[in-house]
Computed example of a mutant assay.
Amino acid sequence: MTSYRAAAAPTGRPARRGALRRTAVPLGVLGAVAAGFGYVAAVDPGRPGHYPACPLLYYTGVYCPGCGGLRGAHALAHGHLGTALGCNAAAVAGYAVFAVVWVIWLTRALRGRAFEPALRPGVLYALCGLLLAFTVIRNLPFGTALVP
């Protein structure tokens, strides 16, 4: 009687992918973000004519949660953290969170582990609530410190 063994893995394909192949996507994202920050660092958003105006601010006079984000990125790229926080503290916090999540993503990719970020609904609602509160407070008379 002949015994059949379990099907072997296809030949010609390495069992472990190389570190560069595993990290191609996180490094590509880093390259795109670095290019974006580099452009914002080189082209000052405070000077008119280079970036479009915020439509919400233009038509209503209300600051959206992103207003001042480009000016904050420009200040941060030049090493002015205080100015960046004054332009848009929520955006600067978002940049920091992105950096932490990116490092975790790269570390997991280097170790060959999957990276599947997911927020629980309660955390997502809390983040949306904080962003909404930030937006409302920066548009009230006592929230002028949050205005870019």
Rank of each mutant, 00 (worst) to 15 (best):
L76W: 11
G66V: 14
A42H: 12
G61F: 02
E116I: 04
F142I: 14
L110K: 01
A7G: 11
P14R: 15
G36W: 04
P117Y: 00
V62W: 15
P45V: 06
R120L: 08
V97C: 05
N139V: 07
G28N: 04
A89G: 04
A24M: 12
L110S: 06
P55T: 05
A75F: 09
V100R: 00
P52E: 09
T144V: 13
R5V: 11
P10C: 14
R22Y: 01
E116A: 11
Y125Q: 09
G94E: 05
I137S: 04
F115I: 02
A32I: 13
Y59S: 11
A24L: 15
C64Q: 03
Y125D: 04
T2R: 10
V123E: 06
G86A: 03
P148R: 05
G94K: 11
A90Q: 07
S3N: 13
L56R: 03
A89E: 01
C64F: 09
A9I: 05
G129I: 12
P48N: 09
Y51D: 03
A96K: 06
P148D: 05
Y63Q: 07
E116S: 09
A126H: 06
P26R: 00
A73S: 12
T23A: 10
A133L: 15
G61V: 07
Y58E: 09
L57K: 12
P10R: 15
L124Q: 13
P10E: 15
V101M: 12
V103E: 00
R47P: 05
V62H: 03
L30N: 01
G112A: 13
V100F: 02
R113L: 00
G122S: 12
C54V: 12
V40H: 07
G66H: 08
G86T: 01
G12W: 14
L56Q: 02
C128Q: 11
H78Y: 12
A90S: 06
L127H: 09
L85N: 02
V101D: 04
A34C: 10
A41H: 11
A75R: 02
L110I: 05
Y125E: 07
G36N: 06
L85W: 06
A75M: 06
L146M: 03
A19Q: 11
R111S: 04
P141T: 13
Y63T: 09
Y95F: 15
R138A: 05
L130H: 05
N88E: 06
R16I: 10
L110G: 08
V62C: 04
T60W: 06
A75S: 08
T60F: 08
C128Y: 11
Y63W: 13
G18T: 15
F37K: 02
R138K: 14
E116N: 08
R71Y: 02
P121V: 12
L119C: 04
W102S: 00
M1V: 14
A53K: 13
G143D: 08
P65V: 08
H78L: 13
A9R: 12
P26D: 00
V25Y: 10
R13Y: 14
L124P: 05
A75C: 07
T23D: 01
G69K: 09
G61C: 03
C128S: 07
T11M: 09
V40F: 09
V62M: 08
A73K: 03
I137H: 10
L106K: 00
R5E: 13
A42W: 14
A8E: 13
A34H: 04
W105L: 02
A53F: 11
A118R: 12
G82N: 01
A99Y: 13
